[in-house]
Design a protein around this nucleic acid. Structure first.
Lengths: 193, 193
DNA sequence: GCCTTGTTACACAGGTCTGTGTACCTAAAT
DNA sequence: ATTTAGGTACACAGACCTGTGTAACAAGGC
């Protein structure tokens, strides 16, 4: 075919493809040959952009590390909205759990850098919860934020195995109870639209 | 009948070793050569007991599928005791998360039999919670049992990444709030020793 | 023109993995 | 003593993996 030198950044294309395959099939299950073949480039080109598969794995996880964008909505809505968003993602059939948890499960405790970024991600989400809780004056925001983080990862793990978006709803109901118990006034009923 | 070999049951030794290595290092990361070498047997012997690595993986997961033994303790203690037991296991440095979640994360959705046993395990634990809740007359035991199961898997996932046994305590505190909210009279304070 | 940059095609080294084939050994049961 | 089940040693096939080396090609900038 046309040996087009690819207008969009080749590095981005490689990374986007690696991301998709790593996430859907597992890191160890996908070889660099497979990634290159999927894009239609030679393996040599891939190695011209990433010095090793490990570098590609790191870039993959770094790419997945996205902070939630600041929102104008009330903190309680943001917190509970997290579980609505999860439920929507569970319904998509290309959802395969948390890429960080999966990577740690797959690559073991050996891999220092993978664990490091996974810890950073988990902690960043916990802090996001904590800051929202502080905004609404919740006492013991630290503990409650941890509990919310546990609920998030719990319903993700459950959905990974069961493929049941209702797990997000169960987590949301639990989160609602915890918030109310902490004195937070939660708007709608337990089954928000 | 089968004449006894000199050794105790070789099949058990293979399975026990495979279990340890699969769990600690990951299924794909451990080859049959490694398992055989660890026991000090030849690879041929291993294949005389298990027709394939897949069969060994299935046996490994089946072995991990243990039901909690019936207990005389009050249901509430059994439920909350689950999180104490988890905290103890998190403190051990050979804890590496839930073997079923890890297997699904590692082997992908392709593998039907792995997913099947993982689902069965998750559901069996949920039903264990549900039956205990029914014993103490909790209304909506189904939903609460699901929430408890989410908390269990959530703190396991969190600990897998963070290596922090406090995650079990956080989950236990959340579980306590949920139980109280359901009308259950919970004995000790939120930090039972 | 020419030169640099990026890509391609392809071979290959060196390692790992699963699974098999074969011949020999050991010890217990008969 | 013979049979036989099970274990050992070891080679090997065939596949896959990561990563490199090399020569050719295509295009834009100078």
């Amino acid at each position: 075919m046309a040996p087009l030198p690819a207008k969009p950044d080749m590095k981005d294309r490689i990374l986007e493809t690696a991301d998709r395959l790593f996430y859907l099939q597992g890191i160890r299950a996908v070889g660099v040959d497979t990634i290159a073949a999927e894009i239609g480039i030679s393996k040599r080109t891939l190695y011209n952009h990433f010095p090793s598969k490990d570098a590609l794995i790191s870039a993959y996880l770094a790419r997945r590390f996205v902070q939630p964008r600041p929102s104008e909505k009330p903190p309680v809505e943001q917190i509970l909205g997290t579980f609505d968003a999860l439920e929507r993602r569970f319904a998509a059939k290309d959802f395969r759990g948390c890429p960080f948890v999966n990577a740690v499960a797959e690559l073991g405790s050996e891999d220092k850098s993978v664990r490091k970024i996974a810890i950073a991600f988990k902690e960043s989400r916990r802090l996001w919860f904590r800051d929202l809780l502080l905004q609404i004056g919740v006492g013991n925001a630290e503990a409650l934020a941890t509990q919310l983080a546990v609920l998030v990862d719990g319903c993700i793990a459950q959905d990974l195995v069961r493929n049941d978006p209702a797990m997000a709803r169960a987590a949301k109901e639990a989160a609602t109870v915890l918030l109310r118990h902490a004195g937070v006034k939660v708007g709608g009923g337990e089954t928000a639209q």
